[in-house]
Design a protein around this nucleic acid. Structure first.
Length: 691
DNA sequence: GATCCTCGAGTTCT
DNA sequence: CTCGAGGATC
């Protein structure tokens, strides 16, 4: 066999693997050209890396693909014509990447094996700044030439621009060798980046997508005076060619030498004794990443001993003695397996992309919302597409963009459904927002289940243990048709559900029973009145203090409440006007729901030591939950907001604070840590107690 | 009528 | 967290 097989019928190579590999290789080549030829690549490094890893993985699985669809010469792009080009004395290589501790340990293993050492090898570690690599040649101590990396062999001559950078010395402080090539990174701090973009916006110019693009774009200006006006920083981290001087024995002494020459040296560089310390360094840097003044995408580890470096040598594209240990990507590529349609409690139909699982900022992401069908159309997401996925604010996955060149030919655009995918009821657009809604109401199992989920949620009636799976069973078996039906269930009924034994049934029954005693504002929120969330529910509860007064209230009475206008008032009115809603409310009350009005003091406004003061919480508080903390503030007459604005008086920051803390600092708003907050409460609560 | 802020509603994963 | 839109304010 095999003798007369056609040349391309390679053993076990599925044709789709070949197609995919070729498509990815072609896309990488395009990105390469764009990245090196212009300054505004459409996709981030993360995306580029993800595609490259995918192709490498295909090569591993089907080695023949390495020949049929090779990795494009990673840094092989024509430099921009406008700059003169010059060859590097020594090629500027890239570094191999690793992404997890196991791969880093494997790197260390290889190093020690090649060096024939059983004992630990010390490393120098430094943050990997997200900027633009630069090579500076000093002759007799004077800056003679500055080259970008270019394709690694040949770079662009940006000497005139670099001479205008305040952090690059024109002359080295003595004693300098006859010729030395210093390598480092041009970058821009987060703060400078913000300011630069702000001023570009003011002048109506295009802003930069990220600090790296800003640094690259600013350095590669044809007019050096423009470069001079940009807030570029530089730091040095390596030596290239060296003539007429002593080669330092270790990376540590090398960095010290760079410093003595008057060059800014890469910050946070640290010598580490072994792998364990290296891993700890990486972890620590990752924790501090967001707080650093510049953007980094990982850490670089180099064997400290330069003689050992020489013995290790290099592969065709990277040194064997160094590695870039990158942080988990904030952006990744994945493929859309399907586009599901979810039905929310209001009947809203939401398209959700089911994705090939990818790790993103430390979590495995399988789904990403597409919000509505307009968005699907605008982004033109199709089943089978390769997409760029990001976790917005490192939390909620979103599809940033589609890579259209990787679209398989059979991918078809998604058609918005005409009938609810769950209950088959017709679908209608609602209002101006062109979202689609299922018209099935509580006959639609999905709508009913989501309504119940809201009803038992923590801010509503807070029934512990009644999750979506159980609710789904209750709905589908017909045991529950309205929220009030929940209170008809006995422990026996609950025990009939799948995966519910007598013990759990008893617990659920008790939880339901407990939830009967609640507050008016919780009940109002639980009912799911359109336009009424927690805040509006509280306003209504404080003003009317009872369901009879509330259901009898006219639109004018409602709209008279500050914070409630005609739209919300009408929504509340309409809700009570619906006989079905009234029936559910009556039945809830008949089944023993007791809604406590808010305490009298809370009704009076502008009282209490914190009256008129607005608090916002961010981060995790160790000694109480967010809700409890908020309740304590309100007890003292203060208000609690969700977002930081000019109205905010005080931000309370717990562990791992979010962007709200930055916003507070920016606006110059008082910030309390948890301890400060507790003592504030203590002092005021005592005074109230003593009255 | 424009502008700024806040609220509601939808979303993911641990 | 983000979006869109309601409400308050000038």
């Amino acid at each position: 066999m095999g003798g007369d097989a056609p040349p391309l019928a390679e053993e076990g190579l599925p044709p789709e693997a070949l197609d995919r590999a070729r498509a990815v290789a072609a896309e990488l080549a395009v990105l390469d050209r764009r990245y090196h030829g212009e300054d505004a690549p459409e996709v981030s490094d993360d995306v580029y890396d993800a595609l490259r890893r995918e192709l490498e993985e295909l090569h591993r699985r089907h080695p023949v693909l390495a020949r049929l669809a090779p990795l494009p010469n990673a840094v092989g792009a024509p430099p921009r014509r406008a700059f003169r080009t010059a060859r590097h004395r020594l090629p500027m290589r890239s570094l191999d990447d690793v992404f997890d501790p196991a791969a880093f340990r494997a790197f260390d293993q290889r190093v020690r094996q090649r060096l024939g050492r059983a004992d630990p090898v010390p490393y120098i570690a430094e943050p990997k700044l997200d900027g633009l690599a630069l090579s500076l040649t000093y002759e007799e101590g004077t800056l003679a030439r500055a080259l970008t990396r270019g394709d690694g062999t040949t770079g662009e001559d940006v000497t005139a621009n670099v001479r205008r950078l305040p952090t690059v010395p024109g002359r080295l402080h003595a004693p300098a060798p006859r010729l030395v090539e210093v390598r480092g990174e041009v970058y821009i701090t987060r703060w400078d980046f913000e300011r630069l973009n702000a001023s570009m916006r003011e002048r109506g110019e295009k802003t930069f997508a990220n600090p790296r693009n800003a640094a690259a774009g600013s350095l590669r200006q044809l007019d050096p005076s423009v470069t001079a006006s940009r807030p570029l920083s530089f730091c040095a981290y390596a030596l290239g060619a060296l003539e007429g001087g002593d080669d330092p024995a270790t990376e540590e002494t090398l960095l010290a030498l760079l410093g003595r020459w008057g060059l800014p040296v890469v910050p946070e560089a640290t010598r580490l004794g072994d792998v364990g310390e290296a891993l700890a360094y990486h972890e620590d840097l990752g924790r501090r990443r967001e707080g650093l003044p510049y953007e980094i995408d990982g850490a670089v580890f180099k064997v400290d001993d330069r003689e050992a470096q020489r013995r290790l040598g290099e592969t065709s594209h990277a040194p064997r003695w160094a590695v870039a240990y990158k942080f988990p990507a904030h952006e990744q590529t994945s493929r859309v397996r399907a586009i599901d349609v979810q039905v929310g409690r209001s009947g809203a139909l939401t398209p959700v992309a089911r994705l090939d699982p990818v790790e993103l900022a430390g979590a495995i992401v399988r789904k990403a919302t597409l919000h509505n069908f307009d968005e699907v159309a605008r982004k033109d997401v199709r089943v089978g597409d390769t997409v760029v996925v990001r976790r917005a604010g490192d939390v909620i996955p979103e599809i940033v963009a589609v890579l259209p060149s990787l679209r398989p030919p059979e991918a078809r655009a998604v058609v918005p459904p005409e009938r609810c995918p769950v209950c088959g009821a017709p679908v209608r657009p609602r209002g101006e927002t062109r979202g689609l809604y299922c018209t099935g109401g509580w006959h639609c199992p999905a709508q009913l289940r989501e309504t119940l989920r809201h009803f038992v949620s923590r801010s509503a009636l807070d029934v512990d243990g009644l999750g979506p799976r159980l609710l789904d069973q209750l709905v589908r078996s017909g045991r529950v048709r309205t929220p009030a039906d929940l209170y008809r269930l006995g422990a026996g009924d609950l025990a009939e559900l799948e995966r519910v034994g007598p013990v759990l049934a008893e617990k659920l029954h008790a939880a339901l029973d407990r939830s009967r005693r609640t507050t008016l504002e919780r009940l109002l929120y639980a009912l799911g009145i359109p336009e009424v969330g927690t805040v509006t529910a509280r306003l209504l509860a404080r003003r009317f203090r009872g369901l009879d007064a509330l259901t009898a209230a006219g639109v004018e009475d409602l709209a008279a409440i500050p914070g409630i206008g005609p739209v919300v008032a009408a929504a509340v009115r309409d809700f009570w006007a619906d006989p079905g809603n009234r029936a559910v409310l009556e039945e809830l009350l008949a089944r023993g729901i007791v809604a406590e009005p808010p305490p009298e003091e809370a009704t009076a406004e502008g009282k209490g030591p914190l009256a008129g003061r607005r608090f916002v919480f961010t981060g995790r508080l160790a000694t109480f939950g967010r809700e409890e903390a908020a309740a304590r503030v309100r007890d003292l007459g203060g208000t609690v907001g969700e977002r930081v604005g000019r109205e905010t008086d005080c931000v309370v920051a717990g562990a791992d604070p979010g962007t709200k803390l930055d916003e507070a600092r920016r606006l110059g708003i008082a910030v309390l840590d948890e301890e400060g907050f507790r003592s504030l409460l203590r002092s005021h609560e005592q005074r109230v107690g003593n009255d």
